[in-house]
Write a protein that binds this DNA or RNA. Sequence first.
DNA 1: AGTAATCGCTTAAACGATTAATCATTGGCA
DNA 2: TGCCAATGATTAATCGTTTAAGCGATTACT
Lengths: 349, 349
Amino acid sequence: MRSEKPKLAMIAETLSVSVATVSNALSGKGRVSPELADRIRETARDLSYVPSMAGRALRTGRSGVLGLVLPDIANPLFPQIAQAIEQAASTAGYGVLIGDSRGHTGVQTEAIDRLIDRGVDGMVVIPRRGTRISDIGCPVAVIDTPSTPGNTVSSDHWDGGRQMGAHLRGLGHRKVLILAGSPQSTVQNDRVGGLKSGLGPDAKVEVVWLEKLAPPDVPGRPLGLAACVRQGFTAFAALSDLTAVRALTELQGAGIAVPDQASVAGFDDLIWSSVVTPSLTTLRMDMAEIARLAVAALTAVIEGLPRGRVAASGTVTAERPSVPMMLVVRQSTGPCRSLLPDMAEGAGQ
Amino acid sequence: MRSEKPKLAMIAETLSVSVATVSNALSGKGRVSPELADRIRETARDLSYVPSMAGRALRTGRSGVLGLVLPDIANPLFPQIAQAIEQAASTAGYGVLIGDSRGHTGVQTEAIDRLIDRGVDGMVVIPRRGTRISDIGCPVAVIDTPSTPGNTVSSDHWDGGRQMGAHLRGLGHRKVLILAGSPQSTVQNDRVGGLKSGLGPDAKVEVVWLEKLAPPDVPGRPLGLAACVRQGFTAFAALSDLTAVRALTELQGAGIAVPDQASVAGFDDLIWSSVVTPSLTTLRMDMAEIARLAVAALTAVIEGLPRGRVAASGTVTAERPSVPMMLVVRQSTGPCRSLLPDMAEGAGQ
DNA sequence: AGTAATCGCTTAAACGATTAATCATTGGCA
DNA sequence: TGCCAATGATTAATCGTTTAAGCGATTACT
């Protein structure tokens, strides 16, 4: 009880039993008399015993670590995701190894390989732009969007869009501009589809894909939103809060009041959404639940339990494939008041 | 060359040598003839051999993994930090295990303990608000601010503040409001000190600590910045881009043009800074360099090299303790034009 | 009563790599 | 020629845990 690192052998020696018995007692697997098991657990606690992951990993072939692959460089969702996954993994008894692919698509597979080499038992992948995850040597949970084949679990982005559309429609907006990023993103396409559906067939909806804008759209470049307002657009639905804030500041800078003269809404409830003035109406993902489901599916396969079977490519399937998003109404959306000069506008406040 | 996982024994068998020789050849440690070493490396490649971290860890006692402890919940700097650390660690041959403390200060130590239990060889800690890192059982690199005792390496926040102060002074601003978060943060205090110094002794500078505001300052609550402008403040220096955007939108919402009527600046060059209109003038940290130095210091101690000695508490010391910040001038700061009605303002530049 | 099953524990063999100790061979040098 | 050193490889122990197999002794079954 004095030497350096407590190991099974010490507990065994202290109680004059075999290490196997100690192991069995602590893991609850073998057959050990309840009293002995108690005494073993007790002295284990006294010695503040911590099992050696290395030893265990070597013997069992499992490391107790999950990999987390985030592909988009400096993704602003990262904090939310990492926190949720770490939380879920940690309560499931797993550690989380991060594998960044620094933006490059090719590096994604490299990052994945590194994780495998490190012996992760499974991994959570948020794939880059509809990248298909090829056959890897371990169970994979893919978080993308329900309509993507191979998706394990994700937010119901389509329904999120629908909620947002319905919200705007309820406020009277009929001419809406959707600010999207890349048409290659399945997530964004789902959101667009939902938005259109929620806005109804009589709404005039236009989509601008930022990534396709004329010669490389530098982030700070004005989007000409004021002109859109003059053309009769009364609401701007951004597919990301990042873009929503961009729109918000551009409008405000052009002297257009939000939400009085135009409404702005976003997605994801990033940390900035609540601090800007006016605070952003947005759709929040239930990352905690998604993480829980993803990790549960992963650990189920890893630990060989019935639930959550292995799919062809090694991607696991979760209990539920989609988690609802939640509309957070704040200040940036308001009733529609068309300001077209040629329309009779009463007491604009 | 057919069975499942390639291990040392297979290479050994293939070439009819002992596993020890193979190990020596691959690690370059023992004595192996150059030709044999070559052949061994070659067949290792052919078999696409990957050493088992578990086996190695068990024998050597080192896991090849570093822990990364981020204490502030959903810290928007997380992407930058995680990416930089992962990058640096990965090129140094280490993996990165994340340990979030979910906001609670108490959980920080718990997170640290979990990482230790998992057998990390060392850890990088960005401490929560001047939390001192107690004696842990492994080398620790602390990234805080140069003036904090025990700091390993960090940005020169004071000089960053000075740069920003000088920038604003150069634009003619003499009455500046500093938007700070918590007075307990050493980082923020350093930035404030630098700002004051850079603005010069004749500048009127006031600091508002958001955390100390009347009953819990909800993020969306207006800060009354428009009133400040009326009182003669011509520039707002936020200690974080998050706050800067908050200030920017509040001013814009109140009909105050930025930077024409008031300048706004921030810190950290978060992803949002460049997309808002006007884009934010800010100070960027060289996270890549900081990460490199932190990881280098860590690995030096871990691998027992001369450079980078162990300090009392187990915190390592880096080659250089501070890394300069870089001023990024964008659109949100401009020449001062006082708008006080009752003051005769000539040709303000 | 005799056989079988059960219980509670121990023995011992892995898992895959590292590394100190050892051994055989050869060359150098007196 | 004879001895020692250097070289290049092997042997075997070890890291800490899990787990299949084994083994008395008690209990149950027919």
